[in-house]
Design a binder for these strands. Structure first.
Lengths: 211, 211, 211, 211
DNA sequence: CATGAATGAGCATTCATTCAT
DNA sequence: GATGAATGAATGCTCATTCAT
């Protein structure tokens, strides 16, 4: 109740509030539409149709579908990056980093998709991080850099950190997607499984020797 | 009558041949177009423009762009499945299965994308297997079944084969995509890395004890 | 009767005929629309609305409104240029050139606008030559060249042929527009008046001495 | 209250002044925009964008783009009419009238376009008089009346003053447009040429006998 | 069957205009 | 009066699809 956002401002006073609400409405509609149709197939009209707004209004807020997508992706990334920073801050060895990073990612996935899941989303939403997003790519790059730091000097020359990153990311992605399809959402299990598999696998390459 | 003009004018006489040729021409054009523009952005027009055929002709062979895509995906799957069958036939233990399966997949990826790569494709093509395809999903399912067979009785009750499959597939996908971007195409390296990582990782769960 | 052009080809046989008919239909509609709204204000949709064709069909024939306009202008110019060539061929002195050129222009205007006039056009049509058209500009340029040829050596150095051309063209345009508004269409009167005024006026500059 | 903030903040107190200033700002913006884009292509948005005013404010002053254009045209006419009145006042014979009228027109053209020319306008501006404006039509009508007065009784019955007016106006328009394209702006030359041509031309019809 | 022109729905986008603030 | 966001009609254009030839 206290939380409904009316468009014309029930009386709390501001024009700006309506603007923010509209922007939010568009973003949320876009989130749903992208989930349903995919970013490519979605049209601006699909999005506005999902809102209470008029066609032209969209363009008061975004220049194109891509811009909304970007905004959405940025939002996600912005929400994820501090978590990753925390992970980094509290991880002084490879194992800890991996475990907390996986946990951070799976929790993030859960949190991002919670609304969609509770509102009985179709079957799979997978909003939140879409790893192909340019902004998200930088996150992957951060992770790669982190891994490199941990692995430098440790790892036999033959290994390249890009393969390692790819493996880590692949596991996270696929397992994450899978986790989202099951009820109840088992963050602990996914974290446990991913971490152990990856760490033990890596151990076979002669690392990580705890420092 | 006997002399109807076939498309290729080869004069070998069969009407059916012309039909097959047309179908093939469309499929190949689609492959190129999908590689260039992505499946979503490509239009039927883009495809027919790439052939020597008329617009209407397309609809004698396919009902929509999606159907062509499906056909293309099926083709891929059809080409991949026998390889997987071979793998299965010659693998009597878990380790062998994993190693040969990964190799089969990376080789398949290389083979499928070779033409595109040689013709200097934009940057990433990734035709061939697109894991999200329904048909491809059945391949993944086959793999899951294979893994289950190997793991049955082996694995501590806590593990679930779906997580394991997800991890295996995630590694394959991400590593495969990555491998395709590098020159020279390093099938051996990818195979080696993926297999070892996965196998050692799995070993940590108390398996696979060679039987 | 013998002259009706049916779209689906009543039986006279050709697909090509329908195409030509459609193109013609668009051109004629455009002519009307341009006359009614002006080239700038007219929209592609205004034009197709005036035809029996569908929206998309327009683009099978023209890429844009401008292209139709160009086609229309070219048509006019193409029809006018041979007349001007005749004038040139049969005029060996300045006076003859001026008289026959003015006549040619006014006759051309009458012929171009005859259909519109007979069909009870709004009030002023003025299709036909729109002097600002790029193609028409080249006609003006031809005239300037013709005048220059006649005037070379004749005219006192102070005069510049561009002023002269401008005056000749201004008289033609304004008088022509005016002539079109009156009934009956008085080609003779306009020719007589324009020629005499211009020639006597020019005489004051010390030419043209008949050679 | 007495201290309402005026737009210019000049503080001189009059509300009316702010209004007039706004109106003026719109008019000047429109003048620029029309010069840049042409009247047809210009949009109300283009105009307000050029001012410091808000979109809605436009409609407090004008109902549409056309109305602004009209106002602009009227302004021009209003500025031109007194000049024409002067011409009339000091011309007691046909020749003087023609010469001073042409001069007045060419000077007017120069004065109106001076700002645009100095600010390095695209290539042709031709603001000021656009002869098709309804208001301008009345100016032409005045001229016609003037001519008629001078010609009454003078001219052989066969001539009609409308042809004569058309010729005079045609010369003025075309020559004026042309003059504006040349640097330096040669008002004298244009006046001289137009007057002489027209007067000598008219003389051929048996007039004007100086009275 | 192949052809390719016609169709009309659909899309992105712009714009004039209104109206709550 | 000024403001500027919202509106929705209109526009140029593309596309999948149909169908007469």
């Amino acid at each position: 109740m206290a939380d409904t956002i009316t468009k014309q401002g029930a009386g709390d006073g501001k024009r700006a509030q309506a603007k923010a609400a509209n922007r939010q409405e568009i973003l949320e509609a876009a989130r749903r539409v992208f989930a349903r149709l995919g970013v490519e197939s979605a049209t601006v009209r699909d999005i506005i149709r999902e809102t209470s707004l008029a066609a032209g209004t969209f363009y008061n807020y975004f220049k194109s579908k891509e811009e909304v997508f970007q905004a959405l992706a940025d939002e996600s990334t912005i929400r994820f990056r501090p978590r990753l920073a925390d992970v980094r801050a509290q991880s002084f060895d490879f194992e800890t980093y991996i475990r907390t990073a996986y946990r951070a990612y799976f929790e993030f996935l859960r949190d991002e998709n919670e609304p969609a899941i509770e509102s009985g989303a179709p079957h799979m939403t997978l909003i939140g991080v879409r790893i192909d997003t340019p902004e998200m790519a930088t996150v992957v790059e951060e992770i790669r850099a982190d891994l490199e730091k941990f692995l430098s000097g440790e790892v036999s020359e033959a290994l390249d950190t890009e393969y390692i990153t790819a493996a880590a990311v692949g596991i996270a992605r696929e397992l994450g997607d899978y986790m989202l399809k099951r009820r109840p959402l088992d963050v602990d299990g996914a974290t446990q499984f991913a971490s152990t598999l990856f760490l033990k696998g890596m151990a076979s390459f002669g690392m990580p020797r705890k420092t």
